[in-house]
Design a protein around this nucleic acid. Structure first.
Ligand SMILES: [Mn+2]
Ligand SMILES: [Mn+2]
Ligand SMILES: [Mn+2]
Ligand SMILES: [Mn+2]
Lengths: 215, 215
DNA sequence: ATAATATGTTAGACTTATCTAACAAATATA
DNA sequence: TATATTTGTTAGATAAGTCTAACATATTAT
């Protein structure tokens, strides 16, 4: 039986290993809000269970088995988020924290029913792909809004930060998923970005532009 | 922060103390599927936190504080069960086990939304009353089907066993919540009961009749 | 290349929730 | 009432998940 803590470690390691930097002890420590030695002892246990590969002082990578389990949890998380928005009427900025809890429900029936009610959805409310029952994910090829050339128009399809603060901010400035965004200008010094969305011109900071994924 | 185990103990003690027999160590042990010494150590902790009153070799009773907390969990359980049936389309025999997990979700928003969607419901799918936000329960005055006199007609309003096996059996023999049941005959020896439901005559065992609550 | 800093590991302790074995009290039975 | 049985308690062990303090390795800067 997989424990709640184990599930959180697997998910965090999976998410970190999507970045170039990979999953290191200190990154995990920060992400999971536990001290470094805790990471060490937990990762050792996960290695014993053959869920991660781990050599001292090198980072961690998930085994196939570990990856499959991580994707099961991620599937539950994203299905839940979409269910909360579509069926229960929550805002996209409210659902992440609730899904962090609900993703640990064991009952497969519960999530199968969500999947049925939502007709096998492919994306969560933040534009992230929902792994299918076998852990398959569509290959996406997204770019950061911060890297798009001036003059281009792109479609906002996902965020890389699902925190309430960030999403509320986007809603407040009138940027929602699937909006068309035209790049008007970018400040070289700090990446400050002038964009046009729905005929309205807005300015975004470089940090914000890095969290917006477009195609 | 209340732990999952604590919540299960509070709920179990509350439920047991609704019977005349009260909550004893061995009953709790059986209900929670843990050995007797575990009950002992946990109840000692709950007593330290002033959630139960406990004197050696006597039973346990919840303090006001403990009762309030138990009712919070019971509210979440029953709201969840109704949500699963009414909104997600589960059968009444499928929901208890799922609710045993979901009741431990901390997010108050999640349950407030259920309550809103269901319009402040008063009863769960098994006829059990849902405590309100302050832990208030309607006074119900139900009788056991096994105690009703021959010749009377009663309304089936609740079950005292929400297990899948029992509820599936009731569905199979065509007895559903709010059916009218006429008592045709009762065998003195073992309580075997002949009833009429929807113009159909059926026979129920004494054990089954004891789990059916009527008014 | 050496020293300073950042990152990772080991050792040992603590809390929660569980167990088994041994013992004690209460209750039922003869 | 004396004994047997059932029920409850204490003692001590264990596993999971966390911590702090001390130490080791790796990386960065001088
Ligand atoms: Mn999320
Ligand atoms: Mn998401
Ligand atoms: Mn139930
Ligand atoms: Mn119920």
């Amino acid at each position: 039986m997989r424990t709640l803590a184990e599930e959180n470690y697997l998910k965090a390691i999976y998410n970190l290993s999507q970045n170039e930097t990979g999953a290191t002890a200190s990154k995990l420590s920060e992400k999971l809000n536990v001290k470094l030695p805790t990471i060490n002892s937990m990762v050792n246990k996960l290695a014993d269970k053959e869920l991660v590969e781990y050599q001292k002082y090198k980072g961690f990578i998930l085994t196939e088995k570990g990856k499959k389990q991580a994707l099961e949890v991620i599937r539950k998380h994203r299905l839940t988020e979409l269910f909360l928005v579509k069926i229960m009427g929550f805002g996209w900025e409210e659902v992440h924290d609730i899904a962090e809890e609900v993703e640990h429900i064991k009952s497969p029936l519960f999530f199968e029913k969500m999947d049925l009610i939502l007709s096998n959805p492919k994306y969560d409310p933040h534009g992230a792909p929902i792994p299918d029952k076998n852990g398959k994910l569509p290959k996406t090829n997204l770019k950061l809004l911060s890297n798009i050339e001036i003059g281009k128009t792109v479609r906002f399809v996902a965020v890389s930060d699902s925190s309430s603060d960030f999403l509320s901010y986007l809603s407040r400035v009138g940027i929602s998923l699937y909006s068309s965004i035209e790049i008007i200008d970018r400040e070289v010094f700090d990446g400050l970005l002038k964009i046009k969305v729905n005929k309205i011109t807005t300015t975004l900071s470089g940090q914000v532009a890095e969290k917006i994924l477009v195609e």
